[in-house]
């Protein structure tokens, strides 16, 4: 049992990462990540929706028929996102001002539909919850990483306006590189493509090295 969960977590965080392995949700991953804060916010909001959507779909999995499963998922996710949008706007207005633009985008985040279809609709709610959480954190990590790199190269800052998202206690995260104005291209769309490309290549290099090391470790054992 714990083995399954460990696999789920590892899948979500690395092996089957939404952005770096599944290459899903690239639209928000590229559009939103002009700063680390934006990436983090979008990631957190998506994670919340992902977890709830996964659990909901998993609970309903037995009564959903294959013919209408996609519309059902979409209705569920869209309603969920709209509710989150309204709730944030009403009671977490400051946060909403930072994230508001992105929340509507979550509806079209194919990672959520993808998880509902590929995982939650055939797993128990507990596993669906873990999967949603792991995938969400993996997604958040990826977005934050892309955002941080683009922000650093593009505007010479790190986690700018993080205090608006996380509260004044987190203002220590905000770093500004003195004397560097940044390369604008990096916070424009081409920068997103370039950074994503380099990160994808990096992940493959790491995976290849790990595999090679695993193979090297396995060889003497069998010999």
């Amino acid at each position: 049992m714990s083995g399954t969960i460990r696999t789920l977590v590892r899948d979500g965080l690395w092996d089957n990462n939404v952005v770096f392995a599944q290459m899903l949700a690239l639209c928000p991953a590229m559009a939103v990540t002009t700063s680390g804060t934006n990436g983090l916010g979008m990631g957190l909001a998506s994670t919340a929706v992902l977890v709830v959507a996964n659990v909901l779909v998993s609970l309903l999995r037995h009564i959903i028929s294959p013919q209408v499963r996609i519309p059902v998922f979409i209705v569920l996710i869209a309603s969920l996102v709209t509710v989150v949008d309204m709730v944030l706007n009403a009671w977490l207005h400051e946060l909403y001002k930072v994230l508001g633009l992105f929340i509507a985008l979550i509806v079209v985040n194919c990672a959520i539909l993808g998880r509902a279809e590929a995982f939650a609709s055939r797993s128990n709610p507990w596993h669906a919850l873990i999967d949603g959480l792991a995938m969400g954190i993996g997604f958040t990590g990826a977005l934050t990483l892309i955002g941080l790199i683009r922000e650093f190269l593009g505007s010479g800052t790190l986690f700018a306006q993080a205090s608006q998202l996380l509260g004044p206690a987190f203002s220590f995260l905000e770093i500004r590189v003195a004397g560097y104005g940044g390369a604008l291209l990096m916070i424009l769309p081409p920068g997103a493509f370039a950074v994503l490309g380099f990160l994808l290549a990096g992940k493959r290099v790491i995976d290849a090295r790990r595999e090679a090391r695993a193979a090297a470790a396995a060889t003497p054992a069998t010999a």
Binding site: G181, G182, A183, L184, L185, P190
Partner: peptide
């Protein structure tokens, strides 16, 4: 082009 867009000044 990348330079022009990145460092217009």
């Amino acid at each position: 082009v990348a330079l022009l867009i990145s460092f217009p000044l």
